[in-house]
Design a protein around this nucleic acid. Structure first.
Lengths: 345, 345
DNA sequence: CACCTCCTTCGAAACGATTCAATCAGTATC
DNA sequence: GATACTGATTGAATCGTTTCGAAGGAGGTG
């Protein structure tokens, strides 16, 4: 691989001139510009990124750290990030999409291979983030609140309004006339799940529902977990008329279990999810859910990061609104009063 | 940020000793090991990646270049890659998941920010690949054949057996008793589509079908494109009894159009796709399709790359088998002989 | 006691770029 | 004709590592 030295030699100029030519061509004379340009071509010269990074102490690269990838859901997020990085002349790299990604992701952070990070990955612990975040490596988190152990001048957050989303779900189910609710939560340490939970219960309480009587069962945010949670519920003889799952994946699992048990959605039991993943539109019936503006979240995160890269500190978090999306898995209940849902199928 | 120099000073040893301590601790004496270790801790020292890369001329990073991301489809691929990189102690980064990713992806290749690349992105042109591929940056392509303009010692390929897959689809539709076929192709310059097409027609020809009479219409590999292609077909009065789309996305579009026109799948028209994306299992009816072993493809690609990284050149391509997945969108046809499918709905 | 080994430690030279102050050659100004 | 100015070019330092050959010292051997 040819270096800038080789080019300089071939063009019979100094290294600095070549460098100048590369960055500000108008500052070198017509004649040398020509010669250098030819040398660059002939030698297929391409500047070495590591050397440049080392010298300039910047990588012009932003890291997006995800823990998995379900369809256009995260794809949208990345698209939002890239819209901003493109205009800023930065490159986006994504890391950590599979099981055992942790070591790799941390290495990128630790060794300063990115100028900034956007993190949506519960596997990366807050203490690590606090450790690595600095003026030269600001971080935007998407999956947690700025709790005590993440307090730092160089970490900020962007989030959808999970609580409001939970509230919207609750309102919707109430308006549809449902009355025997069940909540399928995510993992116990999921902040998102907790907020959705809280919003949901707030809506129920406002309507006079005694939330103490609403069963809550924890899943793992995966389809399988939702299916198991629903099965456990049914096996205990609990037959709600509306199930709200803390995310769409689990809602899908719930629908599967219901289908197996010959319970119809929405006639026998209504189901709601959260996220609005692509699949939600395709299953039958379509899944009513709470839409998270992933593209906007990505954009907002990157804009926050840009501010931090320009030296701002202690940037306040941003919360974006969620919206209700009604599909076939929830329907008005008027006409069905009187039926006995507690009868086993 | 503390540098290795700072550590050396703090521990009262030379820079080289610190470096040695970092890479082969057992080679420094108990006493200094202790002192250096403490200094590292106290200063929160973390080696600078760019400097290391510059010196060692390696990044220990592999780039995976994708053009978009549909669910676990690509996620699986990446998981397969990461399985291998993990065991090799390498880090995987992904680039190019949104619209305007090209400049960023090319920068990563151009500036030597990765030790090797796995490319599944038609937007990255073969001539660029040939330009960048070298002993120090081997490339594995997943979306094209090693055609003339990609001939290079440092590029190899991994692919699913698209032709065989097309053939399997054709055989299946024939066995089910269909007879009036239509093929919805991908973009004209898609090698994958061409191979699937060829395999499909081979199956038909073997069964004595005159493929000249089988209509082919080109889509863009997207849902929308499939929908339009099918609409165009129907508007021309062509009503096949089986549609084979070159990928699942388009097959989904086809199903949408059929639903709009009140044509039932599979009773009126059978539909097959290719890829076996996650959605295929969830739509109603489930989409019969050809499964691509994405995880295996990722693994195989990374293993090829590893061979190249170890100095091998001209590594022969690998082809992995595809499998038929039968779901609800295709059914045996015996009982339906005699009906007139050419009647407008 | 001289000579070898072995184990630690170290100094200095890379790696390939950027950047800044200095030089050089023309032109313009008085 | 001396001086100042402008624009083009350059030399050298620097970024933070790794690596290699050599030095220093302790211990063993004949």
């Amino acid at each position: 691989m040819a270096t800038i030295r080789d080019v300089a030699r071939a063009a019979n100029v100094s290294v600095s001139t070549v460098s100048l030519f590369l960055s500000q061509p108008h500052r070198v004379s017509e004649a040398t510009r020509e010669r250098v340009s030819i040398a660059v071509e002939k030698l297929h010269y391409r500047p070495n990124g590591s050397a440049r990074d080392l010298r300039t102490r910047k990588t012009n690269t932003i890291g997006v750290f995800l823990h998995n990838l379900s369809g256009p859901f995260y794809s949208e997020l990345i698209a939002g990030v890239e819209e901003v990085t493109d205009t800023l002349g930065l490159t986006t790299i994504v890391s950590g999409l599979s099981k055992n990604h942790l070591q790799g992701s941390l290495r990128l952070l630790r060794e300063g291979r990115v100028d900034g990070a956007i993190v949506l990955d519960p596997a990366i612990e807050s203490k690590d983030l606090r450790k690595y975040a600095s003026a030269s490596l600001p971080v935007v988190v998407l999956d947690r609140s700025l709790s005590a152990n993440l307090q730092s001048d160089f970490v900020t957050a962007v989030a959808a309004d999970h609580q409001e989303g939970g509230y919207l779900a609750g309102r919707h189910l109430l308006e549809m006339g449902y009355s025997r609710f069940t909540f399928i939560a995510g993992p116990i340490d999921s902040e998102d799940s907790r907020l959705r939970h809280r919003g949901f219960f707030r809506a129920l309480q406002e309507a006079g529902v005694d939330t103490m009587t609403v069963p809550v069962v924890h899943g793992d945010f995966k389809e399988q977990g939702g299916a198991q949670a629903m099965a456990a519920l049914l096996n205990n003889g609990l037959i709600p008329d509306a199930v709200f799952a803390a995310n769409d994946e689990m809602a899908l699992g719930v629908m599967q279990t219901l289908a197996q048990k010959n319970l119809r959605v929405p006639q026998d039991i209504a189901v709601m999810g959260f996220d609005d993943i692509r699949l939600a539109r395709y299953v039958t019936p379509g899944l009513s859910t709470i839409h998270q503006p992933m593209y906007e979240l990505g954009r907002a995160a990157m804009m926050q990061l840009d501010r931090a890269l320009n030296g701002e500190t202690r940037i306040p978090p941003i919360i974006l609104p969620t919206t209700l999306v009604v599909r076939g898995s929830t329907v008005p209940q008027e006409k069905k009063a009187g039926e006995n849902y507690y009868a086993a199928p």
